[in-house]
Nucleic acid binder design. Structure first.
Lengths: 142, 142
DNA sequence: ACAATCTGTTTCATCCGTGAAACAGTGTAC
DNA sequence: GTACACTGTTTCACGGATGAAACAGATTGT
């Protein structure tokens, strides 16, 4: 059942991937820090395999790497195929714009200002579409 | 409202999902604790939306829920088929609209039509801002 | 009645990941 | 030389997530 207290976070692989991409693109730790929102000191620790990054930083860095999180974190089952009968709403209005913004910040083809502008645009548009005016929380499942 | 929080971990939905499945299967917190390796006290906190679980516990619980982790955490990514070792495949700007679209489609707060419309809007806006040749690139001296 | 055993919640002390800032090298200009 | 601007690393105080254990409530058995 439960494997004994083994860490499910593959820190080494994550660190290697980050260092590889960072060096390939010729960026400094502080550059990546600016793009991802993860501090340079934390990035250094992750690249050197010291400690385990928390969930937010893993999400930011996997977004920057463009790799699925399961690559870095183990133990997650895969379902999803066929249909999403699962009655769970995972991305409510609150989270979505932040997720998009995180992706935009990680996009090297955008300046910080542009990323912010796009993020704001999306935020406004999303809010408009996802808040029909009623206070209905979630769409009823059918 | 969380202004700077920008947490990429959707704790509330994770907690709701766990509580739902736990009650559906008639398990106690300590039962789930035994199955997942997450302590009952931590489970109680997660179900009630207090704090943010760390990466290991997210992995354990998404595994127990049998849902992909991206549903809980806002990571980007694309799975490269098969190969494990070196295999982190990066592909930059073209991916962004697709990533956003994937997230929008997974958002149950949006109808399919709305998701598509938002996706298109984002695609157009992004293309406008990110096309090469302009000043879009970050100034970077070597 | 009482006790025993469940349940979920909440202290409590400990551990650890975090970012800012200090630090140590390494060039590069002047 | 010696400032300066960069690099990656490490120190530091702090916030917060954690599990064990204490806790309160409910249910059941005797």
């Amino acid at each position: 059942m439960v494997r004994d207290a083994k860490s499910l976070v593959n820190t080494d692989e994550l660190g290697r991937a980050i260092r590889r991409k960072r060096e390939e693109t010729g960026l400094s730790l502080r550059d990546v820090a600016d793009e991802t929102g993860v501090s340079a000191s934390t990035l250094s620790r992750i690249e050197n395999g010291t400690g385990k990054p928390d969930a937010d930083n893993i999400a930011r860095l996997t977004a920057w790497l463009n790799v699925p999180m399961e690559r870095i974190m183990g133990g997650a089952g895969r379902r999803e195929d066929g249909d999403e009968g699962a009655p769970v709403v995972y991305f409510p209005q609150e989270a979505m714009p932040d997720i998009v913004e995180a992706h935009l910040r990680a996009d090297r083809n955008l300046t910080a200002d542009t990323a912010k502008a796009l993020s704001e645009l999306f935020r406004v548009a999303y809010a408009q579409f996802s808040h029909p005016g009623s206070d209905a929380r979630n769409r009823k499942r059918r």
